[in-house]
Design a protein around this nucleic acid. Structure first.
Length: 315
DNA sequence: CTTTCGCCCTGAGTGC
DNA sequence: TGCACTCAGGGCGAAA
């Protein structure tokens, strides 16, 4: 399940291949993957993308977007900036393929990119490349959206200094690895929430990029029970939780993300290694790496929570 | 405003 | 061998 580290691995993998490239053609094999594309506002998906240059690869939380130049123009878009916006959902992948490669299983959308500049070809760069959007469960999607100014005038996300963000991503909070993430504001809002801490961690309007895996990992590291009401957690404890969240996200990113099966792969179709480093997620029935107590899995919010019943007690 | 709930979706796995 | 059923869960709109 792609969360912040996995999406960032995809972004950095895609960046050198797509930055500056022009979209020559688009094939849509599964219209449901365009569920969030508003054709009445932006026009037909494929037609709107044709002959547009990709100016950057940007990420905030679990969202990716690619600001686009004017149609058929080499210069950057100014008048009415738009972007190709992507979310991987539960099982989405963006795979780089050479033209002519056999179809990937569950291939939903394919972009044909053409690099018409003088980028050196001897460093693994190719003039033409396919970007395949693969998604088994179709929870992910691609869409075209308008770019609007960020609420705090800071950069939209990782990968570009531009203070613009897709309209449909504006409600997403900055993620813990974002330099402009406001720690103080986060603690303030957390202290006013009467809901369970894990529910708060998963609320992308409060803090983005954290999903079920990294929520369980951060809570285990900070020794907090998932159902502990957010407002009962001390400032000191909340600060530790944010620190632990950052540590686990950074470590997972450094290890290429978490792959259990073929649900998450990087742009070259390779798995990440962080699954070997998990301390809580999926470790029910096995000893807690810290105290040795047998860990458990409990149902919470229609998903699973993994915890050590000794280290993580409800207070 | 906050909070919760149900729906979207496929394929691997399980039990009979 | 086959079929019905369960589970995995991020995001969002609706409802309380």
């Amino acid at each position: 399940m792609p969360e912040l580290p996995e999406v960032e691995v995809v972004r950095t993998g895609l960046e050198p291949a797509v930055h500056g490239a022009v979209i020559r053609a688009v094939e849509v094999f599964e219209p449901r993957s365009l569920r969030r594309h508003d054709r009445l506002v932006m026009g037909e998906f494929a037609e709107t993308l044709a002959e547009r240059r990709i100016l950057a690869a940007v990420r905030r939380g679990k969202y990716l977007w690619f600001p686009l130049g004017e149609p058929g123009d080499a210069s950057s878009g100014e008048a009415d900036p738009v972007a190709l916006v992507g979310h991987l959902g539960m099982s989405g992948q963006l795979l780089l393929r050479l033209p002519g490669a056999p179809d990937d299983r569950n291939l939903r959308i394919r972009l044909h990119l053409d690099r018409d500049d003088n980028t050196p070809r001897d460093e693994g760069h190719y003039r033409e490349v396919w970007v395949n959007f693969v998604d088994q469960r179709i929870f992910g999607s691609l869409a075209i959206d308008r770019l609007v100014p960020t609420d705090d005038a800071g950069s939209g996300g990782a990968g570009s200094p531009s203070p613009l963000i897709p309209e449909s991503v504006r409600h997403i909070a900055r993620d813990p690895l974002d330099e402009a993430f406001g720690d103080g504001l986060f603690f303030e809002r957390l202290s006013r929430r009467r809901t369970a801490i894990k529910r708060a961690l998963l609320d992308q309007r409060l803090v983005s990029g954290i999903g079920n895996i990294y929520a369980d990992e951060a809570l285990w590291a900070a020794r907090i029970h998932y159902d502990q009401p957010a407002h009962t957690i001390s400032r000191r404890k909340a600060r530790d939780l944010l620190t632990q969240a950052r540590l686990v996200l950074e470590k997972a990113l450094a290890e290429g993300g978490t792959s259990f099966d073929a649900q998450y792969l990087n742009v070259n179709g390779e798995a990440g290694y962080f699954a070997h480093s998990l301390n809580a997620y999926g470790r029910q029935g096995r000893p807690c790496p810290r105290c040795g107590r047998v860990m458990v899995r409990e149902a919470f919010m229609n998903r699973s929570s993994h915890l050590c019943p000794r280290c993580q007690r409800l207070r």
